[in-house]
Amino acid sequence: MNKEKILEVKNLKQHFQTGRKSVVKAVDGISFDIYRGETFGLVGESGCGKSTTGRTIIRLYDATSGEVTFNGIDVHGTKSKKDLKKFNRQMQMIFQDPYASLNPRMTVKEIILEGIQIHGLIKSETEKMERVEALLETVGLNKEHATRYPHEFSGGQRQRIGIARALAVDPEFIIADEPISALDVSIQAQVVNLMKELQEEHGLTYLFIAHDLSMVKYISDRIAVMYFGKIVELADSEELYKNPLHPYTNSLLSAIPLPDPDFERTRERTIYDPTQHDTEDAEFREVKPGHWVLCTEEEYKAYQDK
């Protein structure tokens, strides 16, 4: 894989003021790099800050502090409208809820064309229609669907329309925020396969946010595990599954139910108790090449021996 960094996140923090004095540290100082052409999985349980991370990266939220560098440009620093528009084209997002992510009053054609319209990419009506038809075909729908409204489609079809909308502006980088968790199993596979195909054809880079570890494992090259606003472990997906170091990763892995009755009968679950180790002084350390863990000096040594 070519190791050019497309996105660098440095010490990103996103704190929300919820009351006069209370602050929710949704994202609390995370750093990671994403290489061009890879799929980077971000896993964690609800409330761990994974979706906030995605939304902050694409500037739906303004970061409290930290740096996001995309294609060498500081995303949160750019202020000129032109730069922002360029950025909006290069980075796109696929959303979780196929029912809420499409405007119910727009036709499929209008939805897909929205980005093209905003950026003025195509002027002539016939070319626009051709583009819509091509995009619909790319995501496995047909051109008769262009004049329909979202409520006429099933969840999986809607999700594919959402993908077509994101693809319409030819992005390089797509943040997929739990794109399959609201879908049925058989439909999940459709969408995941489609995303993989598109990645190969268009050389896309994905940030794949999910709570379903088995799917993330399947689609991702590298995975970061988030727990309460922090990344606790980051490694190649194979390495993370075979050799999880952080106790939270361990407990997460031990909790995934697998479609295999014999295995389920003998499964043993480990429970993560954050009080069992020192989390105050923990730092993000590279235990093995490419395998980072949030740990203390002591744990670091113990992990290296593993």
């Binding site: 939304r55 694409i58 500037r59 739906l60 922002l84 528009k85 909006n88 084209r89 980075m91 796109q92 997002m93 959303f95 809420a100 992510s101 499409l102 405007n103 929205e114 980005g115 905003i118 950026h119 959402g162 909308r165 502006v169």
Partner: peptide, 9 residues
């Protein structure tokens, strides 16, 4: 869908 529109610029 509003977030999507915003992320499209």
């Amino acid at each position: 869908f509003i977030l999507a529109a915003r992320s499209l610029g």
